[in-house]
């Protein structure tokens, strides 16, 4: 491990300044992802700026919703009564992620900013454009089981690993960012980017930008929401595919909805084509599957990840019919969701 300078500022402005002034500086919070990357040589910062003692630890009522401090632990957010009641997709996504130990360690902002688990990104002996721009992509023609099927580029086929990011996108959450030039607010739909020719940039954040909070708005869809995750084992595994679904029903028909997919792209994939098709419709296996197929029209698969379209379609049917049933709406008979 390369050695580094460790600093622990007491306020947000000092933390932002410390990173902004030093191209080799990085923020560290819980460290569950970054400390592993230090060991693996994936990350080699010259300075670590500890942001765990900046007072960003509160979950507070905010404009009819909640404001969640960046340093709130995943376990505390999942256990919060208002999150469980009004944003169940967020609680479900947190509880589907990592292990009991890591949920105590990992923070809200750190979860959103964790790096891909693409096996080549984490293996410094292999080329990877995301880790070392210009070096090549080992995943495109290599082990491709986890590769993206939507929005990938010739330089990167990695997927974003966060469950929480998928659920926060479905409840219209907004990230509060403090940068060298001041504070700004970034909707979750705009935080993460597609790889294009800059796969090294996971998000739109600039060097020195610090996420200080995540705001959960008073959303008409969030109350009837869920998160469904398909993975290789029953617990403690990253998603093969996942679905965050949130619905506002008018009787049996959809007034509004959000459907966001995880495990399929470089960012949480808001399924806007699917949503457009389902507004005003009943939620049946047929309508949902047809809408999912429309969303998947541009999906690109290889031999190793050809299972993903069918899996994400099935997961979406499962999630949405389950919500409809919970709301007492008529749905297709015989689907065990």
């Amino acid at each position: 491990m390369r050695t580094f300078t460790y600093v622990r500022p007491d306020d947000v402005a000092s933390a932002v300044e410390a990173v902004a002034a030093d191209a080799e500086a990085r923020f560290v919070a819980g460290g569950s992802n970054l400390v592993d990357h230090l060991k693996l040589g994936v990350a080699r910062p010259g300075t670590l700026v500890d942001v765990t003692r900046l007072g960003l630890d509160a979950i507070e009522p905010h404009e009819g919703g909640l404001r969640v401090g960046a340093n709130v632990r995943n376990s505390d957010l999942a256990a919060h009564p208002v999150v469980r009641q009004r944003y169940p997709a967020v609680a479900r996504a947190l509880l589907a992620g990592a292990s009991g130990q890591i949920r105590h360690q990992a923070t809200t902002a750190g979860n959103l900013l964790q790096r891909t688990r693409c096996v080549y990104f984490q293996d410094v002996t292999t080329p990877c454009h995301k880790r070392e721009p210009g070096s090549g992509c080992s995943a495109i023609e290599g082990y491709g089981r986890y590769n993206a099927i939507l929005g990938a580029s010739g330089s990167c086929v990695a997927v974003h690993p966060s469950d929480l990011a998928v659920a926060l996108t479905a409840v219209d959450a907004v990230v509060v960012v403090q940068g060298p030039g001041g504070e700004r607010r970034v909707p979750m739909t705009e935080l993460h980017r597609l790889p294009g020719d800059r796969p090294q940039d996971d998000t739109v954040l600039e060097h020195g930008d610090l996420v200080t909070a995540v705001e959960l708005p008073d959303s008409p869809v969030a109350g009837l929401s869920t998160y469904y995750k398909a993975r290789d084992r029953a617990s403690y595994a990253f998603a093969l595919v996942s679905v965050a679904a949130a619905v506002d029903l008018d009787g049996d028909t959809v007034r509004d909805l959000r459907v966001v997919w995880g495990g399929v792209a470089h960012r949480p994939w808001r399924a806007t084509t699917l949503e457009d098709r389902l507004r005003g419709q009943r939620l049946t296996e047929e309508t949902i599957a047809a809408a999912a197929d429309a969303e998947l029209a541009d999906a690109v698969t290889g031999a190793d990840n050809a299972y993903k379209p069918a899996m994400v379609r099935g997961a979406t049917v499962h999630a949405l019919t389950g919500l409809a049933r919970r709301a007492g709406a008529a749905t297709t008979e015989g689907i065990d969701a």
């Binding site: 622990r8 569950s32 400390v35 592993d36 292990s99 130990q101 890591i102 360690q105």
Partner: peptide
Amino acid sequence: CDHGQCGSCTVLLDGRRHLTCLSLAVQ
């Protein structure tokens, strides 16, 4: 494993279970 995958290094940190392998002592 020393990478947060096995749980052998679990302790209670300020009362909560915690992986010591993924934690920098200075923090």
